[in-house]
Structures are given as structure tokens and as C-alpha cells.
Design a protein around this nucleic acid. Structure first.
Lengths: 151, 151
DNA sequence: AATGATATTGAGATTTGTTCTCAATTATCT
DNA sequence: AGATAATTGAGAACAAATCTCAATATCATT
């Protein structure tokens, strides 16, 4: 099942229609292979001359989230970021507070752990996210050097 | 070391002073034993007749976060929530999308797992959060009943 | 294809949370 | 005490997100 079908199913189930606008937004989201903000997505569509209004983009993204196609990210202190997740294995984000880089990592072990935790509580997972903030190896190195010099 | 000392150390290290305002905010944060929004905290202080401005509250919370005393939560689609973390074991949030309840859970196993993951990448953790969204056991039950009746 | 009922959209106004500004205040250092 | 620097408060400014509502598109029915 491709993302398109998933979305159509979701729409049907919720008495919503697959409109031109929603199609454009859906496709744009799956063409973008990086984290994005809604405003960015909107600007990108304008640039490509696809005609959808800002309001519609803001209205549609939550549907995609609900449909399980897109996830809202939580690693950053900045604006809301999103990523499409359908078809991608779940992964974790390590956010470097220094250089702002985001490292993505898989860990089946961690996944299993989380699933076990939820199961024990009879909690039905829809989505989960692990985000770690701190300093990446590159920045840590630099930091250590600096201290060596100064002290 | 109590939270007060931690904050004072942080302030010193960053050439900041421990002022009346900052003290009031610090104490308020550690008196509040639930998740809070900055605006709420500000209103609470007004109610208690503690004189600090909204701007100062907004300015101070990020210091507390940097000092490792407070964490910004990410489970919700709503406003930014914070919780004080100093002195509390790390815990995970399971957010029920239906009733909006937030369940807190410890899991030393999960913790170890995350630490291992970070270590492998030479990533120095400052903080991490695991948030799971879905449906809690109570809501799941109800949902199942409903289906039984209707189908 | 025409009709009426319903859902969706777009443009801009509005709301809301957060940050900024800058003069007044407070703290710190000689 | 006086000079210097940091902090604060009040409200203005900003930006992201939501709302409004008339115009448009879609659907079901005939």
C-alpha cells in the first residue's frame, strides 16, 4: 500500500474528500526528503506554482499526522518540524545543541523496549519518539580541545 | 546539592546574578509538582502577589532548562509544557490522544539502552525524552466496547 | 446535464504565545 | 558614593497558527 492509498483510506473513514489541494500537499510532503516546517512547505509550493493557500496547508498536515503518514518532531527548540514517516523504519533523533545537527539512528532493541513498556501498561501505541539532546562527537571534540588550551 | 545551588552555579558560570525575580521563579517552579506552561506559572505568581513580569518569567525559564533543572516537554500538540526534573529520576511520557491524560513511567532498562546508543555515537547526552502517543488502557477498553456494540 | 446539499478553499483578519525595546531600577565594583 | 554594568517591567512588535466567511468545487440525485 502506498502513501496515497493510506491517505485515501483515512479520508474515507473520516468523510473527507481527496481534493486537488490535498493531493498537491500529500505529494509535496513525500517529495521532501528532509524535515520541514509548514511555512517552508507552503513557500515551496508557491515557488513551484502549485496553487494552495497557506490555510489549506495548515489544515491538511494534521490529517497526514492522524493518518500516520507524517510525524511532528520534537527535538528542537525552534519551530515545529515534520517528517514523513510512512515506509520508513522508526528512528531516533539526536540533536546537537551546539551545531544544531540532527543525527538519525535506528535501534531495533530500543524499539522493542518501548513496545514492551507500552504493552505492560496496555497502552496502544500510535507513534513514539525518542529525542536526545546534547553534544555530538564533533562538537565534543572541539570543546575538549578548548578546555585543554585554556586550563 | 539542592536545586538552588545548581542554579547559583549555573548563573555564576554564565556571569549572571541571582536576583529576587529569579529566585521567585526558581522556587515557584519547584513548588509546582505538575507540568506547567510559562503563562500559567506567570499567572500563579500574580495570584500569589509575587511581583515579576511576564518577560522575566519568559527570560528565566530557558536558564533553568540550560541549568538542567527544568525540561521542556514534547508530548502534546498543545502549548509548550515544562516540568522540573532536578532530583527526579528520568521518566517517560505516554500521552493518550483520546483523554489527553499523561502517564509517567520509569524504565531503567530503557534508560540504559538510550545511554548505550548515545555512547556508541560518542554523543554526550544532556537530556532525552521518550514520548509515546496513542491510547491508554482505559480509552482502549471503551473503544473496544463501542465496536462490540456496533458491529 | 441540472439541481440542491455539502464540503472545501482562499485571502485576509484575528488571535495567541513569545520576543523585543528601552527607560527605569537594581546590583556590583572601585 | 559614584561609575559601570546587569536586570527588570510595561507595553509594543512580531510571527505562527487559527478563524471567518463568501466563493468555489464536489457529490448525490434526478
Amino acid at each position: 500500500m502506498d502513501y496515497r492509498e493510506v491517505f485515501i483510506n483515512y479520508l474515507k473513514k473520516n468523510d473527507l474528500q481527496l481534493t486537488k489541494s490535498r493531493e498537491i500537499i500529500l505529494d509535496a510532503v513525500f517529495e521532501t526528503h528532509s524535515h520541514f516546517e509548514i511555512e517552508e512547505l507552503y513557500q515551496m509550493l508557491r515557488y513551484k506554482n502549485k496553487k494552495v493557500s497557506r490555510a489549506t496547508v495548515y489544515r491538511t498536515i494534521p490529517y497526514l499526522v492522524e493518518a500516520g503518514l507524517v510525524r511532528r518532531l520534537r527535538y528542537s527548540d525552534q519551530n515545529e518540524q515534520y517528517e514523513h514517516i510512512y515506509g520508513h523504519p522508526n528512528h531516533f533523533h539526536l540533536h546537537c545543541l551546539n551545531c544544531d545537527r540532527v543525527i538519525e539512528q535506528n535501534s531495533p532493541e530500543l524499539e522493542k523496549n518501548i513496545e514492551k513498556l507500552a504493552k505492560r501498561l496496555n497502552f496502544k501505541i500510535q507513534d513514539y519518539s525518542v529525542s536526545i539532546s546534547g553534544h555530538c562527537s564533533l562538537c565534543e571534540e572541539k570543546e575538549t580541545e578548548r578546555i585543554d588550551i585554556n586550563e
